[in-house]
Design a protein around this nucleic acid. Structure first.
Length: 584
RNA sequence: CGGGGCGUGGCUCAGCCUGGUAGAGCGCAGCGUUCGGGACGCUGAGGCCGGCGGUUCAAAUCCGCCCGCCCCGACCA
C-alpha cells in the first residue's frame, strides 16, 4: 500500500479527549475515529489489525471444533423475556421499537439466540457436543465508556458457545477453551494471565477472565508472588487474622463528637482501626442492607451481592438512612430493625470492637457479635487489600490493575432450560443442554496490545498484528535512481509476500521517520541517495535504536529473515498451559 | 445518576474576567526553494465561536435552559 493513497492523516498533537496511551496513539495514527461516546469507526489501518486478530480467533476456535456462524444484532424482546434478562438487565440493554411497535433489543450478547438456535437444530445426544462462534457487533449502552477502545458501547466480539450432554462433558471441554484462549493472546503478542472470576449475572458455575496487566485497566487483581495465586479482587479471599480483643466486656458509651470516619475515631480514642467495626449501607432488591466489616477493611460489593443474592446493589443515600432510623457516621448494628444485616465473618469472631451508638456524637466500646446483636448473614464480604495474607500461603498479596481481554464461563443449564434447548438421551428422555460461553472483544484486544507495546514515539506492533510488516521510507525522491530503486524494492517485497506500507509522499525525512515510529510497523526500510551510494538500504527494527545497512540485493531476504525471527519469537510463546481448578 | 472540566476552521489552542465586525501554530490548496528525525518563503481557501432563549445600541465574551465530549465516582454479561 502506498502511503500517498492510504486514508491516514496522522496527528501531531494528542487529541484533547484522550488521556491514555492506546487512545492517543490509535487516534493519532489514524487507526480509529470517534463518532460518539464509546462509538468508533475502524479506519483502514485499524481494520487491518482487527482482521489479523479475527484470523487468529478463527484459527484457534476452529482448532477446538468451533463452527462459525452469524447471528442477528437486532433481536425481538420475546427471547430476552423468556430468559428473564429483559427484566434483570437495566439500561445497558438498548431497547427499541420497530414500525409495528414491537419491542426489540440491540444484542449485547447472544446467549438467547444461540440457545434457541441450538434448541431448534439439535435434538439428540448424538449431535452433542457442539461449539459455535461468531465475530460480530455487540452494543452495550454503557453508562460510562472510557479509555479509548478499552470500554466501548459498540464493539466487535468473538463470542462462542458450546452445548453439552452433561456437566462432566463441559468440564472436559472447558480446559480446551482455556488453552485456546492462551494461544490466541500469545499469538497476538499479548501477555495475559488467567484469574478466577465472578460468574456475575451470567449465572453458572465457573468462570475465568484473561487479564493483561496495565495501569489503565479497570479491574483489580490480587496476586501472590510467593505461590502464584491470582484472582479478581471481586472474588479474592484472604486470610483474616483476628486481633485478640480479650473476653467480652460490658458495653460502654463514649462521646465522640464530629467523628464520622474510622480514621478520626481511631485517633480520638487512641485505638487501632482493627479494633473498630465499620458500617456501610447499600440498597438491594428488597431494601436496605447494613454491611459491617472491620474498620480497617472495605466492603467488597461483589461478595456482598453474592452473599445477599441480590441482583443490584448501590450505596444508600442519606435520606434512605434516615428513613430507616440510622444515624450516618454513628450507625450501629445494635438495635436496628427492618434491615438486612450482613456481618463479615472476621467481625463476627472479633471481640470488644468499637462501633457506632446510633446516636449523633456517640460510639460504643466493647461491641460483641452474638451478645449485642445478630446478623441475617455472616459471610466474607471484605475486599482483599494490598499486603493482605494470601489465602493459600499467607504471604502478603499485591494488587495490580488489569484489562479483561477475554472470559470463559460455564453457564450450566440456565439458558437451555429457559429457552428449551433440550436433547433426548439414549432412553428418549428430554434434558436441558449444559452450556458454556466464551468471549473476546476485538477492539479491546487491539487497545490492550497498544497499551502493552508502545513507547514515547508511538505504537510497536507485534509482527503478527501489524497492519504491514514493513514501513518503506524513500528519501531524495527527486533523484530518479533512488525512486526507481525504492519502487523496485516495493515490488520485490510484495512479490515475496511481505506486506509493505510505502511512504512515497513528497515529505521531508523527519516527517516520514516520525510517522514510521508512530505507526509502529515492526520493520523500517529506508532507501536514499546515501544508502544507494553503497548499493544498500537501511533496515531497522521498530524496537531497535539503530539501523543496519544491508546490500540492496539482499534486502528482501534480510527483511524476510527479520520478520521470520519476530514471528518465531511469538510462536515460541505459545505453549501448553496447565489448567488448575482452584477453589477461588 | 452524583461531582468536576471542556465545547472557537481538519488538529492543538488563545481571545471571554473588563461586551465593540474572529486570532495563532499545525494541517489543507497553489508556486518556488529545500531534502537523513515533524524544513523555508510567498499566495490562498476554510469558522451559524455546540444549540436555543434572554440582557444590551451591540454578545464568542454577561445570564438562563438544553445538547455533546472527557475525567472521578456509581454502574459494568
Amino acid at each position: 500500500m502506498r502511503r500517498s493513497v492510504l486514508l491516514c492523516e496522522t496527528l501531531r498533537d494528542d487529541p484533547a479527549e484522550a488521556d491514555v496511551p492506546n487512545h492517543k496513539l490509535l487516534v493519532r495514527g489514524c487507526f480509529i475515529r470517534q463518532l460518539s461516546s464509546g462509538i468508533y469507526s475502524l479506519l483502514p489501518l485499524g481494520t487491518r489489525v482487527a482482521a489479523k486478530i479475527e484470523q487468529v480467533l478463527r484459527e484457534e476456535m476452529d482448532a477446538i471444533g468451533g463452527q462459525e456462524l452469524i447471528m442477528p444484532v437486532v433481536q425481538p424482546a420475546e427471547i430476552w423475556q423468556q430468559s428473564g434478562r429483559w427484566y434483570d438487565i437495566g439500561d445497558d440493554l438498548l431497547r427499541l421499537k420497530d414500525r409495528a411497535e414491537h419491542d426489540l433489543v440491540l444484542a449485547m450478547t447472544h446467549e438467547e439466540v444461540i440457545t434457541s438456535l441450538i434448541g431448534y437444530n439439535v435434538h439428540s445426544y448424538r449431535q452433542l457436543p457442539v461449539m459455535l462462534y461468531q465475530i460480530q457487533t455487540k452494543f452495550r449502552d454503557e453508562p460510562r465508556p472510557r479509555a479509548g477502545a478499552i470500554r466501548l458501547r459498540e464493539f466487535t466480539m468473538k463470542d462462542a458457545y458450546s452445548a453439552h450432554v452433561t456437566q462432566e462433558d463441559l468440564d472436559r471441554y472447558y480446559p480446551d477453551v482455556y488453552q485456546a484462549y492462551f494461544n490466541i493472546f500469545r499469538r497476538c503478542g499479548l501477555d495475559v494471565m488467567s484469574v478466577d472470576s465472578d460468574v456475575g449475572m451470567m449465572g453458572g458455575t465457573m468462570a475465568h477472565e484473561f487479564m493483561s496487566l496495565t495501569p489503565v485497566g479497570e479491574d483489580t487483581l490480587v496476586l501472590c508472588d510467593a505461590c502464584g495465586l491470582s484472582a479478581n479482587r471481586q472474588i479474592a479471599t484472604f486470610r483474616k487474622n483476628i486481633v485478640d480483643g480479650g473476653e467480652p466486656r460490658p458495653l460502654e458509651e463514649v462521646a465522640t463528637p464530629d467523628t464520622k470516619t474510622i480514621a478520626d475515631l481511631a485517633v480520638l480514642l487512641d485505638i487501632p482501626e482493627t479494633s473498630t467495626a465499620k458500617a456501610t449501607f447499600f440498597m438491594g432488591d428488597s431494601g436496605l442492607i447494613f454491611a459491617v466489616v472491620r474498620g480497617d477493611m472495605e466492603v467488597n460489593e461483589t461478595k456482598l451481592v453474592n452473599a445477599t443474592k441480590t441482583t443490584a446493589l448501590r450505596p444508600a443515600t442519606e435520606g434512605e438512612l434516615r428513613e430507616y432510623g440510622i444515624v450516618g457516621g454513628y450507625a450501629s448494628p445494635i438495635g436496628v430493625s427492618g434491615v438486612q444485616v450482613v456481618v463479615d465473618d472476621l467481625v463476627a469472631e472479633s471481640t470488644n470492637l468499637v462501633a457506632g451508638a446510633n446516636k449523633e456524637g456517640y460510639h460504643l466500646y466493647n461491641v460483641n457479635y452474638g451478645r449485642d446483636y445478630e446478623a441475617d448473614i455472616v459471610a466474607d464480604i471484605a475486599s482483599a487489600y494490598e499486603g493482605a495474607p494470601c489465602p493459600q500461603c499467607g504471604a502478603p498479596v499485591r494488587l495490580e490493575r488489569a484489562i479483561e481481554v477475554g472470559n470463559i464461563f460455564k453457564l450450566g443449564t440456565k439458558y437451555a432450560a429457559a429457552l428449551k434447548a433440550q436433547y433426548r438421551d439414549e432412553a428418549g428422555e428430554l434434558h436441558p443442554m449444559v452450556m458454556g460461553c466464551y468471549g473476546i472483544g476485538v477492539e479491546r484486544l487491539m487497545a490492550a496490545i497498544v497499551e502493552a507495546s508502545h513507547d514515547e514515539d508511538g505504537m510497536i506492533w507485534p509482527v503478527s498484528m501489524a497492519p504491514y510488516h514493513v514501513y518503506l521510507v524513500v528519501l531524495n525522491q527527486n533523484d530518479e535512481t533512488v525512486m526507481q530503486a525504492a519502487e523496485q524494492l516495493y515490488a520485490d517485497l510484495g512479490a515475496a509476500g511481505i506486506t509493505v506500507l510505502f511512504d512515497d509522499r513528497n515529505e521531508s525525512p523527519g516527517v516520514k521517520f516520525t510517522d514510521a515510529d508512530l505507526l509502529g510497523m515492526p520493520l523500517r526500510i529506508t532507501v536514499s541517495r546515501r544508502t544507494l551510494k553503497n548499493e544498500a538500504v537501511e533496515l531497522k527494527l521498530r524496537t531497535d535504536k539503530d539501523f543496519e545497512l544491508v546490500p540492496l540485493a539482499e534486502a528482501v531476504k534480510q527483511a524476510q529473515a527479520q520478520i521470520d525471527a519476530l514471528q518465531a519469537a511469538i510462536d515460541a510463546r505459545v505453549v501448553e498451559e496447565t489448567f488448575v481448578v482452584s477453589d477461588g
